[in-house]
Design a protein around this nucleic acid. Structure first.
Length: 194
DNA sequence: TGCAAACCATAAC
DNA sequence: GTTATGGTTTGCA
């Protein structure tokens, strides 16, 4: 049985779908119905589900963590993602995306170089990311540092990146799965923005 | 800038 | 199997 928990924090709605205490889907948005619908329409398993408006302690922890990520805060908490049903390549891309630190962005092509495959394939994985915003697909931009796309709309992506500004000034490398991933200050992507 | 062609994993037929 | 579809990239005018 999949348990779905929607919750509002400071005017933004968050929702998670849990199966066996692990996250199979998450989403967020400015109103409840579309947020819930996104989750309901994209459940990975054809099993019964139920929506609960009173979160368990476990669910509440996860929802709180989602809100922290949304606010651009560091979260030390490891969130239990259920990824076993995803294609191997998609898992690799998502894992790599999770390695992008707050305050930095990287590009579709850079990720492609790190995990193999092509930039468009990476874009595909982002577009179908089941775990927004836990997997920070908003930190992936085009090679010219223009934004690229975003499932929740470009404005949401911009606002996200603004909250994550940390004042870094130069690129650096992070290690993920034995490969190095080059990441750039989020300011690069916000440079010519209002 | 703008356009065309190459790119590559998925999902849908 | 095959084809269509992208949150892309690069090269070239």
């Amino acid at each position: 049985m999949i348990e779905i928990y929607p919750q509002n924090f400071d005017g933004t709605w968050f929702a998670v779908a849990l199966l066996d205490r692990k996250i199979v889907r998450s989403w967020f948005g400015s109103s409840e119905a579309p947020t819930l619908k996104n989750v309901l329409d994209n459940l990975p398993f054809d099993v019964p589900f139920e929506v609960f408006h009173e979160p368990t302690t476990h669910a509440k922890n996860i929802l709180t963590a989602l809100k922290s990520v949304f606010d651009g805060k560091e979260t030390s908490q490891e969130l239990p993602l259920s990824t076993t049903h995803l294609p191997a390549y998609t898992k690799k891309v998502l894992k790599t995306t999770m390695a992008i630190p707050i305050g930095y962005v990287t590009t579709y092509g850079t990720i492609a170089k790190a995990v193999g495959g092509g930039a468009r394939a990476v874009g595909n994985a982002m577009a179908t990311n089941p775990y927004a915003p836990i997997v920070p697909c908003h930190r992936v931009v085009k090679s010219d540092f223009k934004l690229g796309g975003y499932g929740g709309g470009l404005k949401v992506k911009v606002d996200f990146l603004k909250r994550e500004k940390r004042g870094f000034s130069s690129a650096t490398d992070v290690e993920v799965g034995g490969a190095l991933l080059r990441v750039y200050p989020v300011e690069f992507a916000l440079r010519d923005m209002a």
